[in-house]
């Protein structure tokens, strides 16, 4: 009993300490998913794209773009231009994809644009696929942007928090594609830009405060 309390305390302390290290000391997995709809209860993930930030640099080698099999092609397909054929050809077994992702996420901070939606899908998926539980830090570039605009008392118009207008505010280029990988890369670049505007000594802790949190993916 005592031992488990001490162990939990130490874990907590370790998290507190590490959160105070400069942001570059951490690795980040920037992820975007394409889904068949907006409701995690009914809809499912069609494809996942991600890219890793290590030592403050986006590692293009780490880029992945995976289509999941079993995904039914529905209404949103028109937007993403994924066909049944693509799903057949490039589909991966969901089990292996999720195990791979779990491995990568173990020592990384998860980064998304508009976390609530993505997290709800990821959590639902985790339950479905019976994965071992995983706790992690996450960052939301949309939340960071919203906090910054509140702090600067510069309200941003409706629609101004979508990925493209956020990027435009930092002078980042416009991307034509909107597949999961392109959006993941776009989000990663946005995060670097946001961090560079946080000043020299930005820590992960600061980022978590303005647009992130700590969560647990629970097994089903």
């Amino acid at each position: 009993m005592l031992a488990s309390i001490i162990a939990r305390f130490q874990t907590w302390r370790r998290h507190r300490l590490t959160a105070k290290r400069p942001w570059q000391d951490w690795e980040y997995l920037v992820l975007d998913i394409e889904t068949s709809g907006l409701d995690a209860k009914q809809d499912h993930i069609i494809s996942i794209g991600w890219v890793v930030i290590r030592e403050g640099q986006i590692q293009l080698d780490s880029a992945q773009h995976l289509l999941l099999n079993g995904a039914q092609v529905e209404a949103s397909v028109g937007i993403h231009l994924i066909t049944d054929g693509d799903l057949e050809d490039h589909g991966r077994r969901e089990q292996s994809v999720i195990r791979y992702l779990r491995l990568l996420l173990r020592d990384k901070v998860l980064v998304m644009h508009h976390a609530p939606l993505e997290l709800s899908f990821l959590k639902a998926w985790w339950r479905q696929q019976q994965q071992a539980s995983l706790t992690l830090h996450w960052l939301d570039t949309l939340a960071i942007e919203r906090t910054k605009s509140l702090r600067a008392s510069q309200p941003i118009q409706e629609g101004g928090f979508r990925l493209a207008p956020c990027r435009a505010r930092y002078g980042l280029p416009e991307y034509q594609g909107h597949d999961a990988l392109t959006d993941a890369l776009a989000t990663a670049e946005l995060l670097l830009a946001q961090i560079s505007y946080q000043g020299k000594d930005c820590r992960l802790h600061d980022l978590l405060q303005i647009g992130g949190g700590h969560t647990k993916f629970v097994a089903g």
Binding site: G56, Q57, I58, Q59, L60, D61, Y170, L185, A188, E189, L192, A193, I195, S196, Y197
Partner: peptide
């Protein structure tokens, strides 16, 4: 040439 390429943002 793309092998090991990295992206950064410079203020």
């Amino acid at each position: 040439i793309l092998n090991g390429m990295e992206v950064s943002y410079v203020r």
